[in-house]
Write a protein that binds this DNA or RNA. Structure first.
Length: 227
DNA sequence: CATTGATCATGT
DNA sequence: ACATGATCAATG
């Protein structure tokens, strides 16, 4: 097993050293088998990168590298470097949210510093042949954090008021709330409109592709629009 | 059931 | 073509 990195520079060095390799090559180094596709293994790429970088797999820590205050996120991109999927951040709290502020929230801690690792994600490329890209360490700018906070406060107001069923994925400019569960029958505790306890589908916070696309475009000086 | 890791698959 | 709502696996 790879030991956890002790400095941010070491982590970034390691991540850079993965760039250009295919998923099959990286998997082989760790005696792992690359699946044919991700249909039954949706988190496989993320787990592989954790292994390669020495993150504590399966840990319940708040961040992947808590000693460094950094969260690891793989992000599937197309040939132009644009994200193909939204990015899951964390489960949304549906109870015990009195007095919860953005500053104290789990989500803010998670995205305060992120090591983004782009990975080719187009289905035309066989999974084993998809290559890992150059990593970047990011933290939200003041403007980005303002908007994330505004989205979070809009979404949390629904939750506090017991209006969870009124929330759709269309709410929020950068941050959206969507189901995060094994299936649509999963249930967790929440508030109803009269403050009574109800059971509802667990939800998670996701970053929209437009937001993560801007992060990548800015860092890599990619064109932010086309045609 | 909740948390970790996300992508799938269908509707618009 | 793309986003939304649904889903998959492994592990406490």
């Amino acid at each position: 097993m790879i030991q956890p990195p002790t400095t941010e520079a070491q982590l970034l060095d390691r991540a850079c050293s993965l760039a250009g390799f295919s998923l099959k090559e990286l998997a082989n180094e760790h005696h792992l088998i690359c699946p044919l596709n991700l249909k039954k293994n949706k988190g496989w790429v993320g787990m592989l990168l954790e292994t390669c970088l020495g993150a504590s797999a399966g840990s319940k820590a708040e961040q992947d590298f808590q000693n460094l205050g950094i969260e690891l996120k793989s992000i599937p991109i197309n040939h132009a470097g644009k994200p193909l999927e939204t990015t899951f951040v964390c489960v949304a709290p549906l109870t015990g949210v009195q007095g919860l502020t953005w500053e104290n929230s789990h989500i803010r801690n998670k995205i305060s510093r992120v090591l983004w690792i782009p990975v080719e994600g187009e289905k035309e490329i066989p999974l084993c042949e998809r290559r890992v890209g150059m990593p970047m360490i990011w933290q939200p700018s003041e403007e980005e954090e303002r908007q994330l906070k505004a989205d979070w406060e809009e979404l949390m107001e629904f939750i506090v008021l017991g209006k969870i069923h009124d929330i759709t994925a269309k709410h929020g400019q950068y941050l959206q709330l969507r189901p995060k569960a094994a299936n649509s029958k999963a249930k967790t505790e929440a508030y109803g409109k009269n403050g009574e306890p109800i059971k509802t589908l667990p939800r998670g916070f996701y970053l929209r592709t437009q937001f993560t696309g801007q992060i990548l475009a800015r860092h890599f000086s990619l064109p932010s629009s086309t045609t």
